[in-house]
Amino acid sequence: MSSTSESFWRMIRLLVTVALMSVCGATEYEYSSWRPDSYNGGRSYSKPPQCVDIPEDLRLCHDVGYNRMLLPNLLEHETMAEVKQQASSWVPLVHKNCHPNTQVFLCALFAPVCLEVPIHPCRWLCEAVRDGCTPIMEAFGFPWPEMLTCDKFPQDDVCIAMTQANTTEVTKPTGYSPICPPCDNEMETDTIVDHMCASEFAFKAKIKEVKRENMDRKVIFQKRKKMVKAGNLKKKDMKKLVLYLKNGADCPCQQLDNLGNQYLIMGRKVEKQYLLTGIHKWDKSSKEFKKAIKKLKTHKCVADQTVFK
């Protein structure tokens, strides 16, 4: 390799390290390679790549550790509106803490750090996040999406990685417990709102009965229900509505053990089943819950938002 080429690559590595070290600290990342033709993949963009501020309402990435991003991004979203629409679907997954590097991985794609040379996440990082988060996604009726197929990310070239690349066991974050994903019941206003926006419908109701059905739990509600977000649900659907806790036959869900409370129930339709995507105690003594319900009255969710696209 010529001295000119060596100097070029040393410069690239330095730029990447300096620009990205702020995300989680200089010792937590490794960076290597770049394929000159990997940014556009042969696609012609209507506008040249530009460096823009990460807007505050891009909730997935506005606190990721850097303030500027490339647009178009590495998922071929050309406008900020498109980035926001697609990225908003993933905010609930980050809240689930299924892998400590979920946000870093997703933001490397949705909001790549602002460098002339775009850097993809490493393949093993994709695989680690995929393996940690797939069980959560399956609980909501979603497979790992094709657009995030890990085989297409680099493994030997320059890429974004956390340092423990050979770690086979994921360290669970503080406060992690193996409860059913829709039952984590985190009482933070923005978390409740994000889950509401990522669900197709929501209502207030008491639970009449919970039955085990194969590897799922079938949740039957009392007749009286108060609609909070109708979505595509019609009155006739509400009368006999039952929700399924996907793959939730054996995982803990405290809410389903206490049938005397009123709950905020969230769900979505997957094929012919209605799945439970969230359940929160209707707790007026909670300031966060009251703020969430108040905010939902005026909050506008991103159009066509679903859970984990």
Rank of each mutant, 00 (worst) to 15 (best):
W9H: 07
R10P: 07
I12P: 13
R13L: 14
T17G: 00
V23Y: 10
V23T: 13
T27E: 12
E28Y: 01
E30C: 02
E30T: 15
S33D: 15
R35N: 04
G42H: 09
S44R: 14
S44D: 08
S46Q: 11
K47V: 12
P48T: 05
L58C: 13
Y66V: 03
R68T: 06
L71K: 02
T79F: 12
E82S: 15
E82G: 05
Q85F: 01
Q85S: 07
Q86Y: 09
S88Q: 02
W90I: 00
P92Y: 06
P92C: 01
L93Y: 04
K96C: 11
V104W: 04
C107S: 03
A108C: 09
A108E: 12
A108H: 04
A108R: 02
E116T: 09
I119L: 15
I119N: 01
L125E: 08
L125F: 12
C126P: 11
A128N: 03
R130H: 14
R130N: 07
G132R: 14
C133W: 07
T134L: 05
G141R: 00
P143K: 04
W144Y: 01
P154M: 12
P154Y: 04
Q155K: 09
C159W: 01
A165G: 08
N166W: 15
T167S: 15
V170P: 04
K172Q: 10
P173A: 03
C180N: 04
P181Y: 08
M187Y: 12
V193S: 01
E200Q: 06
F201Y: 10
A205W: 02
E209N: 11
R212K: 04
N214K: 10
D216R: 02
V219I: 15
F221G: 02
K225S: 08
M227T: 12
V228C: 03
K229L: 05
K229M: 02
A230K: 04
G231N: 00
G231F: 03
K239D: 15
K240P: 00
V242N: 05
N247F: 14
A249R: 05
C251M: 12
Q255A: 06
D257F: 12
D257I: 04
D257E: 13
N261D: 14
N261Q: 14
N261W: 09
Y263N: 08
Y263M: 00
I265Q: 07
G267F: 00
G267I: 09
G267Y: 15
R268F: 14
R268N: 06
Y274H: 10
T277F: 15
H280I: 05
D283S: 06
D283Q: 01
K284R: 05
S285Q: 12
S286I: 10
S286E: 14
K290S: 15
A292I: 09
A292Q: 11
I293Y: 15
I293T: 10
K297G: 09
K300E: 09
K300R: 04
K300C: 05
D304E: 06
Q305V: 08
F308S: 08
